[in-house]
Simulated assay, not measured.
Amino acid sequence: MREELGSQRLKGRVALVSGGLRGIGLACVERFLAEGAEVVLTDLEAPDTEYASATLARLGQAASYVSANVASEDDWAKVLAAVTERHGKLHILVNNAGIDLTGPVAETSLEGWRRIMSINVDGVFLGVRTFVPLMAASGADFRGGASIINVSSIMGLVGMSEVSGYNASKGAVRLFTKSIALEFAEKKMPIRANSLHPGFVLTPLLKEGFQRWVDKGVASKAQDLVDLMSSKTPIGRLADPAELASAVYFLASSDSSYMTGGELVVDGGWTAQ
């Protein structure tokens, strides 16, 4: 039974979530709104598509949307202009947008390698670089300051066969986060930075990845892979995106005011094995 939400403990805060139309990103947007925050979300989809327009209508007036590619400096400038014009502040930045890349390293193209790095790593860097000045100016509004949450993965902590590109990208996010956390602390900037390390979560990205394995003949159907990963996870199941959103909420709120440069692992016990 899910805990009742809506404490309004993020009232007065402005949050930005990249990759916010689906999966963990959308769950974070929904949780932030339930807790009283105003939220700007970005994704690749045009705002007038059927899915995007229906989702935005459901989220309500406290949410706004900017179509943006996180690997583009120009698009990040567009997002900054939208946030500044609408809110003038930013207290929470969730760099969530990401893609995966699977297959043997000898068969991985340079184009594929560069694409995953551009989104999973460059996208995080550009998001942070773009919003540090505004977050530094906004951070004094609340105890613990502004909060950056960079979504890494358990694949940023441990290796797995045939996901070398994804491993590398998520490992980069982990150490980038630690570096900026120290930089902000040393400069007495009111910004904390932590990384989130989800295990296997039932998201559209995971399902698409499993389907690619099915297409390669690894399994007869995607559900077989869900069942396999569930059996290998100590807690016995995959995560719901809302469970990751709860962890992000903790990192975004003043409850984590003494936490910076840390890594929050939410993986059902996978990395404890």
Rank of each mutant, 00 (worst) to 15 (best):
A222V: 09
A252I: 01
S254W: 03
Y258I: 09
D43V: 07
V218I: 14
K216V: 05
A252H: 02
M160H: 10
G25P: 03
K232M: 14
V226M: 10
T49F: 04
Q61W: 03
P198Y: 08
G25M: 08
Y258D: 09
F210C: 05
S138D: 01
G139W: 00
L5F: 05
G171V: 01
L59R: 06
S152F: 00
Q211C: 13
V158K: 15
L182H: 08
G123C: 05
R86G: 01
C28T: 08
C28A: 06
A219G: 14
A54C: 13
E73R: 06
T108H: 09
G6A: 02
D224L: 14
I119P: 01
V124T: 15
S138H: 04
E107M: 12
G103C: 12
F200D: 14
E243W: 11
A242K: 15
K187N: 15
R22K: 07
A52I: 14
L134M: 04
V121T: 13
D43F: 04
A181S: 11
K232E: 15
L182T: 07
V218N: 11
P198K: 04
F250E: 08
A63F: 00
C28D: 07
L228H: 12
D255A: 09
R13P: 03
A57L: 12
S257D: 11
